[in-house]
Each structure stands twice: as C-alpha cells, then as structure tokens.
Design a protein around this nucleic acid. Structure first.
Length: 291
DNA sequence: CACTTGACCTGTCCGC
DNA sequence: TGCGGACAGGTCAAGT
C-alpha cells in the first residue's frame, strides 16, 4: 500500500488531528502488530501526549512527550484512522460517518485520547507494525541507517539519483527504483509512473540506461510524487488517509492499473507484465527496451 | 558481494 | 455457486 505520497498524506492528517492530544489508554494485539508490547507498554503510554508527527521514507513517527516515539510501518494494507468523539464531533465532522464503523476485524491497535477521540491502526494483512522506542534510538535502526535520501528534499539532485541508481548496475531499473537504500519512498505505483514519464522500459538494466535519461527520470519522479501528495495519494484497494478518505491520484495515473487502456501520450494500449516480482505497467510504444 | 526469489497474511477476483 | 489458484501498494531472510 502506502508509498511516500500516501504516508506523507497520513502524516499531514495526523499532524493536524492528534498533536497536543494526550493518550488515555492503549489496546493492541501482540506480538505481530506491536512486537515490543510488553505488559506495561499500555500503562507506559497512558498520560503521554503527542508532540510531533514525522515521516521518513515510508515510516511514520509519532513523537511523545516522554521522549519515546511510536514508529509505524503500514506495509501493504495498514491504515491509521482518527475518529473523533461523539459529543464534540457531530454529523458535521468530516469523518463523523466513521463513528461506530471502527474498530473492525482488521483493527490491531487502538489509542484512546483523553477527549474520547481515537486513533485506530488497522491492517488486514498484518504485515505492518508499530513499535515504541526511545526517540534518540530511532536513528540506530538498521532501516534508518541504510535508507536512501528523500526524493523531494531540496538537496536531492538528478546527479545524486544517477549515482545512487548506478550502484545497482546489473539489475533492472525498476528493481533499483524500488530499492529503499537507493532512494526512499518509491514503491510499485510510483516506480511505474516515473519510468513512463522518463520513457524508460522497466527491465532496462541500469548499466544500459542512457546517461541522458537520469534527469528526465528525476523530473518525472518528483512530478509524480508531488502531484500524488496534492491529490491525497493513491487508493488502489485499502489505502485511506487519517480521516478514512481515499486518495485521488489514480484518476491521473498514466499507466498504473490502466492495462488495456490508451497511453495518454500516444494512445497505444498499456500492457501489464511482471518485473522484479511485481505487477508492472508500461506503454509498449513509449517505453522501448534498450538492452 | 550482487542479485533474485520466497515468505509473511488475509481477502478478492477470475477461470473452471 | 463452489473451489483452487493467482494476485495485491512492502520488506526481509534465505537462496543462487
């Protein structure tokens, strides 16, 4: 599910909805969705308040007043949905319709705030996880030590993208884009969309990618990610934002989930194949293999 | 080491 | 309808 734009959308929603709230109680299933939830974690959480929400790559960080953080990976089907309390959020509230809908059978963790509002961590496939860690220890996690740069950060250049992709010279360009140590936050949707934008075939070996393609690839990646964030991300199946709303980006996607439909550039029908073990969408005319 | 493939889960969809 | 198999947005560990 969530790639960079979806996690960023959730992050912005949570920033608006839960910063300043105090956790009154926590419930979770263990150990799958909360691997370090010892018996006293719920009582430890109670009374701490949310001071900040951050995103790095596809990981969400909820900073608490105790100098601990909740570290959350939504993986394929995770959701973080905030639901206001009945008294204060009546019919007029954007997600008032969710009151009574949650928790459901996919709910793994529930945080109840002191004003009666709740944050639900739902995850149908149980690949996602939530951990409680001392905030200073987060940088020591293997994932954070190895993860590549943020593709939308001001100091990330097309030359930087080229150099990092070329570390994976014998693999195909799609697998290299999906490698989180090359660049952070790209998943299957935005890999396909970025490659279409740069007119690159996903099975092109990195060592065969023409040097002139890296700048278009960088430009396409930034454009795709930026537009998706503006549209609230992509909802293919499970993804919803922090208020339970679906993203709109797939209305604008060029190739993803558009097999059998015309390429927006040349009207050739989009085809679906399998690359790097993932469903892959390409325009057979625009994206020529150069191996 | 670099690279590829399966496993982790549940739900849904498609073909027989 | 029922059933089996493929597949679904991510990451690891284990294999070659």
């Amino acid at each position: 599910m969530p790639e960079l734009p979806e996690v960023e959308t959730v992050k912005r929603g949570l920033e608006r909805l839960i910063v300043g709230k105090t956790i009154a109680s926590a419930q979770f299933d263990t150990p799958k969705s909360f691997p370090n939830a010892e018996a006293d974690v719920a009582s430890f959480l109670a009374g701490s308040s949310v001071v900040a929400v951050h995103r790095r790559a596809k990981v969400l960080l909820i900073g608490l007043s105790t100098n601990y953080s909740l570290v959350i990976h939504l993986k394929m089907t995770g959701q973080l949905v905030f639901v206001g309390d009945k008294e204060r959020f009546g019919a007029g509230h954007p997600n008032a319709s969710l009151i009574g809908q949650l928790p459901d059978k996919s709910t793994r963790v529930t945080l109840t705030f002191s004003d009666g509002s709740r944050l639900y961590f739902n995850d149908q496939r149980k690949f996602g996880w939530m951990r409680l860690l001392p905030t200073p220890e987060i940088v020591n996690l293997d994932f954070f030590k190895k993860v590549g740069p943020e593709p939308l950060s001001a100091d990330f250049s097309w030359q930087n993208l080229q150099a990092r992709l070329q570390r994976r010279k014998n693999t195909n360009i799609k697998a290299a884009l999906l490698d989180q140590t090359v660049v952070a936050g790209i998943g299957n949707i935005y890999a396909d969309e970025s490659l279409w934008g740069a007119k690159l075939h996903p099975t092109t070996l990195v060592k065969n990618v023409p040097a002139a393609k890296y700048k278009p690839l960088y430009t396409a990646m930034q454009a795709v990610l930026t537009q998706s964030i503006a549209e609230g991300g992509s909802s293919d199946r499970n993804y919803v934002d922090a208020e339970g709303s679906r993203g709109r980006y797939l209305n604008f996607a060029a190739v993803f989930r558009r097999e059998g439909r015309p390429c927006p550039r040349c009207n050739t029908l989009i085809v679906k194949t399998r690359v790097a073990g993932r469903g892959t969408h390409t325009c057979p005319k625009c994206q020529k293999l150069v191996n």
